[in-house]
Nucleic acid binder design. Structure first.
Lengths: 207, 207
DNA sequence: ATCTTTCTGTTGCAATTGCAACTTTTTAAA
DNA sequence: TTTAAAAAGTTGCAATTGCAACAGAAAGAT
């Protein structure tokens, strides 16, 4: 994507303390503990944001892909549990300091301006992601959650047919519902003729 | 807040097409139809983001307060229903054009830099809001939703006691659960000694 | 090519939730 | 200050969901 591309091209000339690091699969990229000044951007690869609660239960809070922006700065201060970002493939990550973006650079340097614009773009994309998820999660039944999510995917692809960006197991996590209950409801939707499904390709049959 | 304050102070000097408008209670501030270039900031007052679905049902999607940033740019493109922002009190709203923020100003003018920095801050605050809601909504039971939300409010206030920022009716909407079911669960939490409640002031009694 | 792990698909059952339908209390408006 | 409109509080009941516990299929690893 040109956004991040511009940014990388400008790192050399920058007056900011920007680092780029490489991670192999299953490494800890960062933990959300007293790093509210750190903002991260995935240049390539994928990672999971994982919560370990007090009982040691593991829970995938978010999934990050190429060009996604993340960091403790995006999260409420929360003392009860620990958030950790772990690479799910090999990946390259850019680490920026929030203050370097926020505080106005006295020289009005080109790097700062590029940085601000790019990060605004990435942050907006992030907001769209989040609002999509909120719209889906705020539906009360599994059926409505599925249909809402499908409808958004359909709008995005301009087509009644689309491929799920997840495994069904991960879809259940995304919708925050029990997997078996979701499977049951998917079956109902198929039996009642609302959708058809082969593998993780879905087709909407209504309207 | 100093963020928005800085911004307003700089409007006069700006090269950008910024408008400030006043609305009385119950006016339509904007609709999310083909305004993906429009970004709005509430200077003061409050507003609701409302969805009208195909059956004409009304649903409060989000609530905005002073210094909140919003606009179609934050939402997925979605053909099925209409989103409208309506003032719930008298309010003043700043209208910016996304392109004016995104596209680099050739003169590196002071206004542009202030704008970018401020909007990044507001956008980050917005992300924290959204992630809070996602964390709460992704809990599977009403009990967990309540306790998670309470725990976040408690962390924010550095206290086991805090005041709900909503009426109970609006809290049920925020948690996306049936109000009567939520009341039942609140009562259970009180009876089992997890919390105490008087009016909309909550006290956590555990740990 | 075999083994191991992850994912898909199912089902019974108990627990939770939403819905509908009320009453009472509080707040706002005329 | 009376009236109207929200909000809070309750309850029975039916529907949905989560949980547990499987078996089979697919994908990765050795």
């Amino acid at each position: 994507m040109s956004d991040t591309f511009d940014l990388i091209n400008n790192i050399q000339s920058g007056c900011s303390r920007v680092q780029k690091k490489h991670f192999v699969k299953n490494e800890t990229i960062t933990t959300y503990i007293q790093k509210r000044n750190q903002i991260c951007i995935i240049i390539n690869g994928t990672a999971d944001l994982i919560r370990y609660d007090l009982n040691g239960n593991k829970d995938i809070v978010d999934k990050f892909n190429e060009n996604d922006i993340f960091g403790e700065a995006f999260y409420p201060v929360h003392t009860n549990n620990e958030l950790t970002v772990i690479s799910t493939t090999d990946c390259d990550v850019l680490f920026l300091l929030h203050d370097d973006i926020y505080k106005k650079c006295k020289q009005n340097c080109k790097f700062h301006n590029t940085l601000s614009s790019n990060i605004l773009e990435l942050t907006l994309k992030n907001a769209i992601h989040q609002n999509t998820r909120i719209e889906v999660l705020s539906k009360r039944t599994i059926r409505e959650k599925l249909l809402t999510y499908f409808s958004i995917l359909s709008s995005k692809d301009f087509s009644k047919s689309f491929t799920l960006p997840f495994t069904l197991t991960n879809l259940a996590d995304y919708l925050s519902v029990d997997r078996s209950a979701m499977m049951r409801e998917l079956k109902n939707l198929i039996d009642e003729g609302f959708i058809s499904k082969s593998g993780n390709r879905i087709k909407l049959l209504y309207k």
